[in-house]
Amino acid sequence: MEVLGSLQCMLSPIQPNQIPPSNSKNAHLLTRRKALTFTSSIAAFYFQFCQNSDISGFPSAIAQPVDELQQEEDRAVQIFQGTSSSVVFIKDLELAKIPKSTSETVLPEDENVKVEGTGSGFIWDKFGHIVTNYHVVAKLATDRSGLQLCKVSLVDASGNSIIREGKIVGFDPDYDLAVLKVDLKGNELKPVTLGTSRDLHVGQRCFAIGNPYGYENTLTTGVISGLGREIPSPNGKSIREAIQTDAAINAGNSGGPLIDSYGHVIGINTATFTRKGTGMSSGVNFAIPIDTIVRIIPYLIVYGTPYTDRY
């Protein structure tokens, strides 16, 4: 734009009193000679300007938005590739009868098994602990019949897909949190990278990975729409300091991670408002903040119950 502006300035009209009378042949030749000299001066100045000036900013001004868009897309791809292997697919199963023996590598899934629901979770540590929402595994957590079973599909650190039975370790309905454990049997897992939720700001980019409607490893993007929200827990109490986001969260996303632009988990996707009678997401979605999760999960792993329930 700087170059174009300079040229426009130099091509301003010549004043009438600077043009000699046109009835003289010599004057006419002189006029042509001056015009040619003037045109040559423009060309000489232009080429000298191009050689001595840095005009690289002109094409870069156009290319810069393209480069920024490419960087943004590349970042989203990197976040998904780096985190998706730490996200698991959870299926709630109801058996028609109690099996004589339970195999952790071959789980029953035939006419005698009913899939009651699906959800998501993420790998907490290399010992096989899986964090998810309590409402995803509530039937298993409260089962007294022995007919409830939880199947966990995940990927190990080497990229191998494995299926294991998930055993309940602990749960806290007040905060809609639960911990499962799977038997590794020689498989090494890749835990998520934990972030913090104390310094989040409205407008930050965020990413959700989960299994909506059974579609595994689905990525949705959005921003943090609000902070300090209050949402109901499964037992009717309130979960405070929830994160509001417009990243799409649907049935099956529950228990999956909400991730920041650095690939760090900042929350667990938990709830969404739906339009009455449609089942469609309204775009108003909520996640439990990671600072709350970090405070509760270690107690569930060690004691099976939240800290407040042990006294």
Rank of each mutant, 00 (worst) to 15 (best):
L30I: 00
N52H: 14
P20H: 01
T39I: 13
S41Y: 02
T37C: 05
H28W: 10
A43C: 00
F47L: 03
H28V: 06
D54W: 05
P65D: 14
K34F: 06
C50L: 15
C50S: 08
I42A: 00
L36G: 01
D54H: 03
P65W: 05
I55F: 11
L36I: 12
S41Q: 11
L36R: 11
T31R: 15
C50I: 14
N23I: 01
Q48R: 05
F38I: 01
Y46T: 03
N23F: 08
S60W: 12
I62W: 07
L30Y: 09
F49Q: 08
H28T: 08
A63N: 10
S40T: 09
Q51V: 11
C50N: 04
A27M: 09
K34H: 01
P20G: 07
S41K: 02
I62M: 05
T37A: 12
A61M: 06
P59T: 06
F45R: 08
P20M: 04
L36Q: 08
T37R: 04
Y46G: 14
R33K: 13
T37W: 01
A35Y: 15
S40R: 13
Q64M: 12
L30Q: 10
I55V: 15
N52L: 08
Y46S: 14
R33I: 05
A27V: 02
A35D: 04
F45S: 01
R32M: 11
T39A: 13
A35M: 11
F38D: 01
R33Y: 08
Q64K: 08
S60I: 12
N26D: 13
S22G: 11
T37P: 01
T31K: 09
F38E: 04
K34I: 00
N23G: 05
P20L: 04
S41H: 04
P59C: 13
T37S: 10
A43P: 00
C50G: 07
S53W: 00
K34L: 06
N23A: 10
F58D: 01
I55L: 12
S53I: 00
D54V: 04
Y46R: 10
Q48M: 14
A44M: 15
A63H: 12
F49H: 10
A35F: 15
T39Q: 05
I55G: 00
I55M: 15
A63C: 03
N23R: 00
Q64Y: 10
I55N: 02
S22D: 09
S53A: 06
N52G: 15
A44Q: 12
Y46N: 11
I62A: 06
S60A: 11
A27F: 01
F58R: 00
T37Y: 06
P21I: 01
I55K: 03
L29F: 15
T37H: 11
R33W: 04
L29W: 00
R32V: 14
A43S: 12
S60P: 02
G57L: 07
T31S: 13
C50F: 10
A27R: 02
P21C: 03
Q48K: 06
G57A: 03
A63I: 12
K25D: 01
Q48C: 10
N52M: 09
S40G: 03
N23H: 13
Y46V: 11
K25R: 12
F49L: 06
L36A: 10
P21G: 02
A43M: 09
S40H: 15
S22Q: 05
N52E: 11
